[in-house]
Each structure stands twice: as structure tokens, then as C-alpha cells.
Nucleic acid binder design. Sequence first.
DNA 1: CTCCCAATCTTGACAGTGGCAAGATTAGCA
DNA 2: TGCTAATCTTGCCACTGTCAAGATTGGGAG
Lengths: 227, 227
Amino acid sequence: MARGDVTESRRARANPKADHPYHHGDLRAALVDAAYELVERDGADALSLREVARRVGVSHAAPKHHFSDKAALLAAVGARAFDELAATMEQARRRAGDDPLARLTSAGVAYVSFAASHPALFRSMFGGALAGAADAEVRARSRRAFEVLVDAASHAAGPSATPAELRVLVTAAWSAVHGLSLLWLDGRLGRRARAGGGEAIARLATEVTELLAEAVRRRVESRGPRP
Amino acid sequence: MARGDVTESRRARANPKADHPYHHGDLRAALVDAAYELVERDGADALSLREVARRVGVSHAAPKHHFSDKAALLAAVGARAFDELAATMEQARRRAGDDPLARLTSAGVAYVSFAASHPALFRSMFGGALAGAADAEVRARSRRAFEVLVDAASHAAGPSATPAELRVLVTAAWSAVHGLSLLWLDGRLGRRARAGGGEAIARLATEVTELLAEAVRRRVESRGPRP
DNA sequence: CTCCCAATCTTGACAGTGGCAAGATTAGCA
DNA sequence: TGCTAATCTTGCCACTGTCAAGATTGGGAG
């Protein structure tokens, strides 16, 4: 479910569970797969290296040769998750057509929808283990997702927006969808929003991003031509 | 540092560390104190019940009689933290005077400033252990903090704002400051913001909340009188 | 084709964790 | 003054992440 298959390299292994040859063939990818599933289900805090190893059918110390650390495994999971997020958002942008406002809102909706449909995963992508060390790869992959938002916000602000104005819009939009996602996951948006399910949160995201875009556009227009 | 002292009840204990009488006197409060400090320093994930017990000078199983669970202790810490947040925000509102916009922005700034000066604590107040069970007390205390924001946003929207418009503003403002706090804590706002320290994040919060308030106000005004 | 090195995986151990159970100690009420 | 119930301790279990040393094997050098 998580995502298609991963390059099954080198050796064609008939049965991954029954006959456990001493060398697994593609342990690294298998570990990331299993970890991704577990994190998606129970979150990063609940992840146990030993459990991952067990699922893959390998001894508890085997992961050590591919991931120095539990944090390293989580970083790999995070990188994959951000790829997923970026793909989702890019697809949403593509589907949104040419209208700049529609592009922004649909990117925002894609963001919160991803959070809503992968709650534990989404939480694990920020803060916690991924925050401190901030694996370089994770940062790079996450940037791609954010670029979608930045691009959409830029168009929504209009061509004559100042860099500073643009920066405020981008920061505000990103903060808003991010905060909206987390507050909703925490169930802190009142029961009206919670009851509505995925639809309610999507509508909220639309309203909020529209509000922001509208604000910047008006501000830009009322200022007159760019100095 | 965390906050003054807690009601030292019942018995006056001369030396809390040296002579450990069989009955501590006020173990519950002492545990919360110690846990609060540890969470503030290292976050909820890093908290160890045994470490807390050690700090208080008590056996590792003693906390069981006051907190059924590690989550229960964290809930107590969370409740205290939300009290702190609420107090900070109320103070900010008081200092802001009468201007509705100033009230909103200063509440928002107080929110992100709290996050910035208590990073690990702030993270622990949301998601993770506090998210699932959602201790009733924590919810109640947190509501008080959010009320400040709601109140400020209401005034900023103007007297003729519709309930629906108001709800959008409140949700947007709250989401924005919340997301802003977390993204900044994660170091995801670019190096310009990170380098600025507490000042930069406060400025961002001001700009974002002002943008939102402005948007709603214009929307309300341009709509004409309330239907 | 053979042999050997290095990568890969396993077994075993250690310190630390949260939670449970049974016993020691004491506070405060009858 | 005595005794019950609350409080705290000791001891244990299953589990975790990490390390060290040994077993196994793939794949290139000769």
C-alpha cells in the first residue's frame, strides 16, 4: 500500500519468508518498507528496530549494517514520506489547471489531505527524531514538497508582488496549512470540524488559503505598480 | 525556573534529599515538578519515569501510586504547560491595550514566543502522548489559552463580522501561529528566519496575523452591513 | 576455476526502560 | 492506643537499542 514496490535488486528471491538465506539480497529496502508501514500505522515513537527486523525475518542486529542508528532508519522513512507528499502535491497542482488561486488552494488541500490520511506518518515527518539531526537527505526531499507551495503562492500573489510580500504569503500559507493539519490531527478544532471528516478539513484549508491569497492580492493591488 | 514553587503541603520537610522519610509528604507535586523540568529540557520522548523518581529521591515504583501511567504524568505536565501558555498570552493581551489589531498580533506573538523559548516543552504539548487519550484536564486547560486567541480575533474582525467569517479568521490565525511555531522549531523557515532568533520569529508572527486580520476586515467591510 | 577477503548476517550480552506483585512502613482515624 | 488503608520499597519480567565476536557467503583477484 505504502507505495509500489522497490527495486528488487540482484537476486530473485522466491519466498521472502520461508527460506531465509544467510544473505537477504536487499535488506536495506526491505527494512525501509517494513519501517514505513509501521510508522504509518503507529508513528515513529512506537517503532521498534527489533520489530522491524522480525517482520523482515532477520536477526535483531542485522539492521545495524545498513542503518547506524534508529534515527537513520527513521530518516530513510522520512525521506520516502516527503517524496510521497511532494508527489501528491505536484499531482494536485497539475489537476488544478491554470487559475493561480485554484493552484494555491489545491496545493494546500493536498497538504492537509495527506496529513489527514496518514496521521501517524505525517506527525513523524516533523519534530521528534527528524528535527534534531535533520538528516540532509530528508531536508532535500522535503524542500521539493515545499517548492510546490512556494510556486503556487508566487503565482497567486500576482506578478507585481514584492519579494518581501511574497515571503510573507508563502510563510503564512505554509504555516497555516501545517498548523491546520496538526491541530486537526490533535482534534483541537472543535467537533464541527472533526465530525466532517476529510471533507471538513479540506474545506477549511481552502477557505484559509483563499483568505491569505486574497489578502496579499489586495494589498499588492492597492499599493499600485511596483516601485 | 519552570515556575515558582508548588504548594508545599502538609508537612514541612527540612531536607528533601538527605533524610528520606518513608513517606515523602508531597510526592505528586514533586514528581510533576521534576518531570516538567525534564520535559522542558529534553522533551517528552526522552522522559524516563525512573529518572524522575531518581531525581525526587524515591524508588522507581513510587510514581505508580500517583500516576497510573507515564502518559498520566505527561498529562499533568501538559496541563501545567498550558496554564503557563495561557498566562503568557493573557499577559500579552493585557499589555497590548485597546487596539483590536494590536491585541491579536500580540497574542500571536506571545504564542510563538512561548514556543521559541520552550521548544521541547511546546512540542510535547501537542501530538505524541498527549494526542491520543487526550486527557480531559489537558483539554480544559488548553482551551483557556485558545480562548485568548479567539477573543482577540473576534475583536479584530470587527463587530459586524458573521459567525462563519469569524470562525475562518480564528481557525486561520490559530493554525498560522501554531504552524509557524513548529516550522520554526524544525528550522524549516530558511536561514534568514533562523538567524534572527526570537526577534525574527516574532516579526513573522506579527506580519502573518496582521495579514489575516486585514483580510477579514476588508472582506467584512466590502460586503456591507450584516444581512 | 579456485581461493580468499570483505560484506553481510547471527548469536549473545549489557544497561536501561515501563509495568506488575508482594512485602515493609507509617499516617491518621476509630 | 490500636489498626486499617495509603504510601513507599524491593524484586521481577518482558522489552528495547546498541555493542562485540563469531558464522556464512558473494564476488573479484590470481
